[in-house]
Computed example of a mutant assay.
Amino acid sequence: MTALASLPMYDWPETQYFNDKLWDALYHSLNDHGVEAPKSLAREIDPMTIWRNPHLVLGQTCGLPFVNLLAQETALIGTPAYDIECGAGSYYSVLIVQEDADIHKISDLEGKTFGYNNSMSQSGYAAFHYHINAAGFSKELLSAEQHTGSHRSSIKAVASAQVDVAAIDAVSWELANRHEPATATIRILDCTAPTPGLPFITANNHKTMLKPIRSAIIEAMASLDESVRDELLLMGFAQTTEQDYEVIKSRFKSMGTSTKKTS
């Protein structure tokens, strides 16, 4: 099998052209550094399948599956930095509700329905539950949880009152403000504490190539046209470590410890 690459996390229809421009720069830079890379991104394969593939050269995953499932099978390269007013390599989630909803604090979520993209999502699921736990509430504050399948679907579900609240990572929220009309009827209820963002990974058998891979990424990002960086919100690249991501694992383990249920 040939080398594989995947950047699925922010690959919206409106950004695919720019992700292809990013990959083109990465492809040439990786090959210049002696790293064999595919000419195009793999978009037709399930992300988890790609992330665990031994031929993965570069992929972007979520912090929660990385710490819980992938850390032993992949090597962390680092983390892109995005223009979201957060520390380089970090991100946070916004908790969103309908503009006219009578929800103004966490306790107002009592009896409400929470919409989430995936139960293995740090930004869309774990961050929300950690946040309400930190406020003194457990998931029993809610009446129900509803799987939506994606951040964009969660935004639409809030706008259409299918769910009352959702957690959207700050990069997706900014993309939605640019490309998703449903945001017009939504407001931010609260923001979660920052955690390390969506990491770039490579298969374990490429671990000896981490230094040239990192160099190739940094050089490729520096070479991008300003329009591409703006459309993808890219600002740079942070050399994060596995230790940086331990906060996600510890917060995930702490979820559900609060005993307070209602206001």
Rank of each mutant, 00 (worst) to 15 (best):
M1P: 10
S6A: 13
L7P: 00
M9E: 08
M9I: 13
P13C: 00
T15V: 08
F18T: 11
Y27L: 05
Y27W: 10
H28R: 14
H28D: 11
H28C: 05
N31D: 05
H33L: 04
I45L: 00
D46I: 00
M48C: 00
T49S: 06
W51Y: 06
W51I: 05
W51G: 01
H55Q: 12
H55L: 08
V57N: 02
G59A: 08
T61R: 02
T61A: 00
C62L: 11
P65C: 06
P65V: 04
F66K: 03
F66T: 00
N68H: 12
N68Q: 12
L69V: 11
A71T: 00
A75C: 10
L76C: 02
L76F: 08
L76I: 03
I77T: 02
P80M: 05
P80E: 08
G87M: 11
A88Q: 15
A88C: 09
S90T: 12
Y92D: 07
S93P: 10
L95C: 02
L95V: 08
I96A: 09
V97G: 06
A101D: 10
A101T: 05
D102R: 12
I103P: 09
K105P: 01
K105T: 12
I106F: 09
D108G: 04
L109A: 08
E110W: 04
K112Y: 07
T113P: 01
N117R: 12
M120H: 13
S121W: 03
Q122D: 10
S123I: 09
G124I: 07
G124Q: 01
A126I: 06
A126S: 15
H129T: 02
H131G: 05
G136Q: 04
F137L: 09
F137K: 09
K139A: 06
E140V: 05
S143A: 15
H147I: 02
H147Y: 11
T148N: 14
S153C: 03
S154T: 09
S154V: 08
I155Y: 11
K156L: 09
A157D: 01
A161H: 15
A161E: 15
A166W: 05
I168G: 05
I168E: 00
N177I: 04
R178T: 10
H179D: 11
I186D: 04
D190P: 08
T192P: 06
P194N: 06
G197T: 01
G197Y: 05
G197F: 06
L198D: 11
T202I: 02
A203N: 01
H206R: 14
K207F: 00
T208F: 02
M209C: 08
M209E: 10
L210I: 10
A216F: 03
I218S: 13
I218R: 14
A220G: 03
D225P: 14
V228A: 03
L233A: 01
L234V: 11
T241K: 03
E242M: 11
E246G: 02
F252R: 11
K253Y: 06
S258T: 13
